[in-house]
Simulated scan of single mutants.
Amino acid sequence: MASIEELAKTLRGIAATGIKPKALLAAVRERHPEATKKEVVRAAFYAVAEGQSGDHSDLYDFALAERAVDDDEPVKAAKLPKKKNRKTKPSGEAAH
C-alpha cells in the first residue's frame, strides 16, 4: 500500500491545469493500483496542505469534489420531516 506522502508526490506530478477528476484518479491508479479513491482524496488534501511551492488549485478542487462521493452521483441533502403543529384546544371549548 502506498503511503499518503507517495500518493501526494504522484498527484503533484500529475496534476495539470484543466485535468478532470476522473483522469487524475485514473492516472494515480495506474501508478498505485492498490490505492483507494478515499486514499487518493486524502493525499490530494495532504498535497495542498503541505504547502510546497506551486499552484495546487486543481488538487484542491479535486479533493473537495470527490471527498464524500462514493460514485458518480452528487451527494444530496436529506430533507428533514416537517414539525407537526400540535395545538390543543382548551378543555372548556367544544368542537364545532
Rank of each mutant, 00 (worst) to 15 (best):
K37A: 02
D70F: 10
I14S: 03
A15N: 00
S91G: 06
G18E: 02
A49L: 10
D58L: 00
T36N: 03
R12T: 05
D58Q: 09
K89D: 15
I4T: 15
Y60E: 09
G92S: 14
K37C: 00
H96N: 13
E5R: 12
F45R: 07
R67D: 01
K9Q: 13
D61C: 04
S91W: 12
K87S: 13
A2P: 15
V40W: 06
M1Y: 13
E39N: 02
R12E: 05
V48A: 05
I14Y: 00
H96W: 14
A26G: 10
E5W: 08
P33S: 02
H32L: 03
T17Y: 13
R86Y: 07
K83N: 09
G13K: 03
Y60T: 02
E39M: 04
L11E: 02
A68V: 11
A78D: 12
A27D: 10
E5Q: 12
N85R: 15
A2M: 08
A8D: 07
S3Q: 13
K84G: 07
H32R: 09
D70A: 05
G54L: 02
H96R: 13
T88G: 14
E93D: 09
K38V: 09
G13Q: 08
P74T: 01
A44I: 02
A68H: 13
G13F: 05
K9L: 15
T88H: 15
E30N: 11
K83H: 10
S3D: 14
A77W: 11
I14T: 07
A35E: 00
A2I: 04
L25T: 07
A95Q: 11
R31N: 07
G13R: 01
M1V: 13
H96V: 13
A16I: 05
A49S: 14
P81N: 10
D71I: 06
V69T: 13
A2F: 07
K9P: 11
E73G: 02
E66I: 01
V28R: 02
F62N: 00
E73S: 10
V75L: 12
G13N: 00
E30D: 10
K76Y: 09
A2K: 07
S3C: 05
K89Q: 14
A8V: 01
R86F: 09
A27V: 01
P81I: 02
P21Q: 00
S3K: 10
R29T: 05
K89L: 13
K9Y: 14
K82Q: 12
N85K: 13
P74Q: 00
L80M: 14
L7C: 03
E5D: 14
A47E: 04
P21E: 00
V75C: 08
H32F: 07
D72E: 12
K87V: 11
A65S: 11
I19Y: 06
E39K: 01
G51C: 05
A16C: 03
A63T: 00
A47I: 03
A77V: 10
V41R: 02
G54N: 03
Q52N: 10
E39A: 08
K38C: 04
A44M: 05
K20P: 06
